[in-house]
Structures are given as C-alpha cells and as structure tokens.
Design a protein around this nucleic acid. Structure first.
Length: 240
DNA sequence: GTCCGGCTCA
DNA sequence: TGAGCGGGAC
C-alpha cells in the first residue's frame, strides 16, 4: 500500500484508540504463579509453562470468544496439561472434552497435539523454539497444520516476545471501511502497519488488542459508529 | 438469533 | 472462493 492516502493514519488510529480504551495489557498469564493480569508488564511469559499457555491460548481462541477459550485453558491447567508431553499422552477423546468449551474442539485437540509434537521433535522445549529468529520462527510455526498467519504471529508477538504485527479480521474490516489500503492480503496489511509504526513490542502488542476492542464494540459487522473513537477520521457511514 | 482474539481443504 | 467446524455468551 502506498503512502499518500494511508501515511499517518495508522499512527493516528493508534493514538485515538489508546486514548479511548487505554492500555489493554495483552496477553494475560495465569499459570506457574503468573499474575492473573499484568497490564503494562511485558516481561511475561517467564517460564516454558507460561509460553505454552499463551501458544495454546492462541490456538484455542481461533474463531472463538476469549471467554470460551479461557475456560478451556483453565481446564487444561487443572489437568496439568500445559505440558507438551502431557498433551501427546492424553487420549484424543479426553482432550476434546477438556477443551470442549472453546468450540471446534475436534480440530483444536488435533492442533494442540500437532503443535506439541512439533516442538518436542524439533526443539525439545518452547525456549529453544523461540530462540530462532523471527523469520525462521514464523516459517516453522506456519509449517504446523492448524497454525495460520494470525496464530503464528500471535505466538511470535505475545509468547516469544518478538515484534510482529498481528493482523486479524477486525484489522481487515477497519482498513476496508476507512479506505486505507488497496492490498487486502495478510502480508500487505501487516507490512502497512509494520512500516508506519515503530518496530516496538509494546506498541504492536497494544495496537492489535486495541483493534480487537474496537472491532468488538464499534467496528462490528453491523457497525456502531455513534460513539466510535475513530468517528472523526473515518469516512464510513458519512453522508455523501 | 448473532458472533467470537481462524484454518484447512475442495 | 466457499463450506465446514461448534460451544457459550449476549
């Protein structure tokens, strides 16, 4: 996407969203004596269990509300299954029931197993997996069936703590409605944000979370523009 | 009844 | 590009 139309807007959107919603503090870490929430604390995850928690959470929340994914995550925790070997040793049918609340539980049970098997076979643990550089890590994650662009980037950003901008359906919808980008594929949209915003972990982490908040509250499929924080700079729904 | 912090396969 | 996957919250 080119400069003239979009240049500056990405930054402006970020500032308005941050001012309106405040810092979101993604990603919550619960396990291994982690705090329930850590807004402003980007030092998590600290342990492999916590890295697994975030990676599993990223898979469980695919096309599902975080509430439902969270329940599944807690359930895994209670069964001591924030553990790669443990997932592989758990009967598929049992695993499905443990994560049932997240929806798509048959697919996700398989995905947890495939991901766990990959990490164990290729790296042994999460810390070693994350020791690869961002490009290589992304390539590896994408090679696992069940991990696509958004899930891979979520893991890279929130678990491996490497600056990679996460694009999701809300992001596409926003730039579509605001007429910012003409290129609609994932990589182009990601590049758009990464090129305008400072390559910064905290900013990428907050920006994606803020876009989710905007998408849930205002920029929905059926938009609620009335009290939208971007109302002044968005052309959508403006009278012609 | 609608929608969710997507992805695979045809 | 479209169908299929799915429980739970609102």
């Amino acid at each position: 996407m080119q400069d003239s139309s979009g240049r500056g807007k990405i930054t402006e959107i970020y500032e308005k969203l941050l001012a309106f919603f405040g810092p979101q503090g993604w990603w919550p870490v619960y396990s291994d004596n982690g705090p329930r929430y850590h807004p402003g604390d980007f030092s998590y995850p600290k342990t492999d269990i916590q890295r697994i928690e975030i990676a599993f959470g990223a898979i469980l929340t695919q096309q599902s509300s975080w509430k439902n994914a969270e329940k599944a995550l807690f359930n895994l925790m209670e069964h001591g299954l924030l553990d790669l070997e443990g997932i592989l040793e758990t009967e598929e049918e049992i695993l499905r029931n443990i994560i049932r609340s997240s929806g798509y539980f048959r697919q996700k049970a398989e995905r947890l197993k495939l991901f766990s098997g990959f990490v164990l076979d290729r790296h042994g643990d999460m810390e070693d997996l994350f020791s690869s550089d961002t490009k290589e890590l992304r390539r590896e994650l994408l090679s696992v069936k069940g991990i696509g662009n958004e899930t891979a980037d979520s893991i890279i950003l929130y678990a491996a703590k490497k600056p990679k901008f996460v694009v999701d359906a809300y992001t596409f919808r926003l730039i579509e409605r605001m007429g910012i980008a003409e290129e609609r594929d994932y990589d182009s949209v990601q590049r758009l944000f990464e090129e305008e915003m400072p390559k910064n972990l905290e900013i990428y982490s907050e920006y994606h979370a803020l876009l989710v908040e905007l998408g849930k509250n205002h920029c929905r499929k059926k938009p609620n523009c009335t009290d939208c924080p971007l109302k002044q700079i968005c052309l959508y729904n403006k009278k012609a």
